[in-house]
Design a binder for these strands. Structure first.
Lengths: 292, 292
DNA sequence: TCCACTCATAAGTCCAGGTTATGCCCTCAT
DNA sequence: ATGAGGGCATAACCTGGACTTATGAGTGGA
């Protein structure tokens, strides 16, 4: 498997059309780039670029590989944006506190966008549940928070930035995967489901929607664990749409239509009452808009 | 930025609860794993695992980082599955020919699933347009093909494995991003759009749906280029749902509702008439089912 | 014809990540 | 209590891969 730097180099070559220019962009020398691409080609057993005295173009296979590589690099950018913010920096100009779901799935993307607009703004991130987020904001230790849940914690103002929809998902082999008739509330409540543990936000929304009745088939302590169990066919699971986007796209999971159940929750930006968002906070919030 | 091996190690530690066990799984020694995790922690400036004489558990930050890392590693697995198949292996037991869109977005996932079921089956991949795929199959140089388009090429039998829907997308800042009233065919045909070049499958489907009338705002030669142009706000684009799933999830693009335009095409598995799928081909096809 | 660009090759340096060897800490079972 | 075993850390050493600089060779435009 090639390493991340190699993949970035490949993307740069694709974009710039020359090994030398790509090398310069990444701050290495042309022979280094040349050798690196060559070693990737050896590794993969496929020619990736057509070299000519006038530049380098991707081969057919190279284009395909580059597209696959782009996914990896994009995920790495999200990782990096998140990781940068996670490191504790006292001099941060924008201190964000966010719930797990938001920190996990949405925030990295927002941070990438923010970095494009305010490259010099140091951002720090603290992840925790609603109470922790509220506490940090009220203590003046964070400038803006993001929470998922029914209401706005006391002492805070907020604005809805996104809707999180819970979805019922099953592995493609499950009988429900071919189901066209939507599940009703009664049927859903009667079915054993793979769920987060009692007390989690996701579980709370589900039980509110069903009227307190959810039969756990399995109780697991993380979104990831629930997802893996569902993918491996253990049964139907209820998860945030955000968490299963990729699995649905890759058909590792199939969404089951549901009717008559209110499986939504609001994702809100929050800040202390009176602190009208300004500066970097305002900028960040503007990135989260345009969302239904 | 940590490297892929480091991230995999972190996932293994999360899963197995011990540095030593994770090290063993990856075929390295315990001190190597210990040092690697430590260097990642130094790099990120955050403690990732709580070490104890009874094992290692992720810290809060570690859990977050691990979830971000999982995305990268999953993308890397898709890359690897694709790359393995791309390398020309004459002894392959399953030779697949696929159109670009399918090879790019769907096939890696299928190959991962297939590898789980038939770990010893060598798969080779050739990407090309419908005509190339048909040619390979008829020449006996491929065992199964995947094409996108209106019909099944002559001499082949096929089965629909997925629906590809084209979607109209804009950057979140665009006026259409807030639009609730669906666009009609007339309005869409009258609007300048970012499109693939004349002759591409995507463009063909769009023009068929609109009755031959599409006004290009920009004509670009790859899906990726169209996507970047749309993301950067150049205007509305029409793209396969498969291509923009991630951008929609991250809100880098917003889907514009459309009404009264048939923007679908079938993705089909194909094989020579009479060659009933059997063995690995049958297995691969079974993975692509359960899809609407 | 010469310059400006491309890429490839060669030789040398250096460090990251691996290894083995060892020690400490904790827990559990004898 | 006491050893066995699992878990982690540290130290010393080795090696290979990836970088650098220096150079050459092909192509195309001024």
């Amino acid at each position: 498997m090639p390493d991340l730097a190699g993949l970035e180099l490949l993307l740069a070559v694709a974009r710039l059309g020359s090994l030398g220019r790509a090398a310069r962009e990444l701050g290495i020398t042309q022979p280094a780039a040349s050798g690196r691409i060559r070693s990737m080609e050896r590794l993969l057993g496929v020619a990736l670029v057509d070299r000519s005295p006038r530049g380098s173009r991707l081969t057919e296979a190279g284009a395909l590989v580059t597209d696959w590589a782009r996914r990896i690099v994009e995920a790495a950018e999200a990782f990096d944006a998140g990781a940068q913010a996670l490191r504790d920096r006292r001099d941060s100009r924008l201190r964000v506190a966010a719930s797990m779901t938001i920190a996990e799935y949405l925030l990295p993307g927002w941070l990438i966008a923010l970095r494009a607009r305010l490259p010099d703004t140091a951002v720090s991130l603290l992840a925790g549940n609603s109470a922790v987020v509220a506490g940090r904001l009220l203590a003046g230790e964070a400038d803006v928070g993001f929470v998922e849940g029914i209401g706005v914690p006391a002492g805070l103002d907020g604005a809805v930035v996104a809707q999180d929809r819970l979805v019922v998902v099953v592995a493609p082999g499950h009988a429900w995967a071919r189901r066209r008739v939507p599940l009703g509330a009664a049927e859903l409540a009667a079915s054993p489901l793979i769920l987060r543990e009692e007390g989690s936000g996701t579980r709370a929304v589900l039980e509110a929607a069903l009227g307190g009745l959810a039969r756990p088939l399995l109780e697991l302590s993380s979104t990831t664990a629930v997802k893996s169990a569902a993918v491996s066919g253990a049964g139907p699971a209820v998860l945030s749409e955000l968490a299963v986007g990729e699995e649905l796209a890759a058909r590792r999971l199939v969404r089951v239509p549901v009717d008559g159940v209110r499986l939504r929750r609001e994702l809100r930006a929050v800040w202390p009452v009176g602190h009208v968002p300004a500066g970097p906070v305002r900028e960040l919030l503007s990135l989260t808009r345009g969302v239904r």
